[in-house]
Write a protein that binds this DNA or RNA. Structure first.
Lengths: 185, 185
DNA sequence: GACACTGTACCGACCGGTCGGTATACTTAA
DNA sequence: TTAAGTATACCGACCGGTCGGTACAGTGTC
């Protein structure tokens, strides 16, 4: 056969869809396989354990986040806070991809929290970038954390912010980064 | 008999401990019962379904958060940002109780996300308080979100911040609230 | 025939939930 | 005083079903 270079992607998509529709604890291999339109054997061929599937989910998520940020950063005028802005705008962009990203974190956290260590590495690098950017570290971290908080709250379905207020908050975040850039504090 | 007013509490403690030790998906009724030192039947007597147990977990968590904040707010000098400060300091106080609080959110999110709606209500009320406080709403929200972000990141084990940096970040948050109070911004 | 898969049947552990039963304390009323 | 009845708290065997994982016999393509 060999026509499926994207078979793994299809399975990963299915896994996210299952989590979205049925909840994190109900993401079993059988239902993911069915959703992806492959047999259980087929799924096991690509991901030999459930842990492998979970790992595949976060790794793809991280890859996708970096790719999206990469694409966005070009549209932002240069400055010390450019990367921070791009990160926030990427994480908070209101689309289904972003929603699925949160779900991936949730399933993995529920099943095998140690797999999230790779996200810790991502955050650590992010922190290093911030420290090197010349912005006030604590204040930059707070803005970055606020973005995480908003994303995570939405993923848990407990964000009380309307889309319009969310938009205003995002604008204010960008403004605060610019204040940091100008040293105004 | 009647000596056990705290039997439910004991079970809730056990449930949190199980999540902490074994992960959210492994929190089964059998192991919670064993951990609590009661039989399965005993557990089912107090919480007739798993959903009931989960509900008990978040409800206790919310109660505890408010009680702790209530106690803390008295120690903070009056001002428009008093409640916000107390909330942040309560959510971020580094102790085991706080750690367990995050875990409760995680299990519930994994098993039955709709039970988190009560947290949405809590946040909504919090937002109303902020709007009424006279502080700049977007900026106050950002600080509050940063506190959520830090707590949630820690709960997921993906916070890259050292305790000392975390402390500095918390201090900066308090400082920013005071800037907001003085209308400097 | 080697490779890249698919489909299905199956395993044992574990899941949430039920059920019949027990022990103890309190209430009632003959 | 005591026997009967009621309510509360708890036990643990058990049920049907689901889980992650295995085994293996195909199947179409190079």
């Amino acid at each position: 056969m060999a026509k499926r270079a994207n078979c793994k992607e299809k399975i990963l998509d299915a896994a996210e869809a299952v989590v979205m529709e049925m909840g994190a604890v109900r993401m079993s291999l059988d239902v993911v396989a069915k959703k992806a339109g492959v047999s259980k054997g087929g799924l096991m061929y690509h991901f030999s354990t459930k842990k492998g599937l979970l790992k595949g989910m976060i790794e793809r998520m991280v890859r996708q986040f970096f790719a999206d940020r990469e694409a966005l950063v070009k549209e932002i005028s240069p400055g010390k806070g450019r990367m921070l802005k791009a990160g926030i705008l990427t994480a908070l962009r209101p689309d289904e991809k972003r929603e699925r990203m949160g779900l991936s974190i949730l399933v993995v956290a529920a099943h095998d929290p140690e797999l999230l260590k790779c996200l810790k590495d991502v955050h650590r690098e992010h922190l290093k970038d911030m420290a090197a950017s010349g912005l006030n570290l604590e204040r930059a971290a707070i803005i970055s954390l606020a973005s995480d908080g908003l994303m995570l709250s939405e993923m848990l379905g407990m964000s009380p912010y309307s889309p319009s207020l969310k938009k205003k908050i995002m604008d204010t975040m960008v403004m605060m980064i610019e204040e940091l850039e100008s040293g105004k504090r």
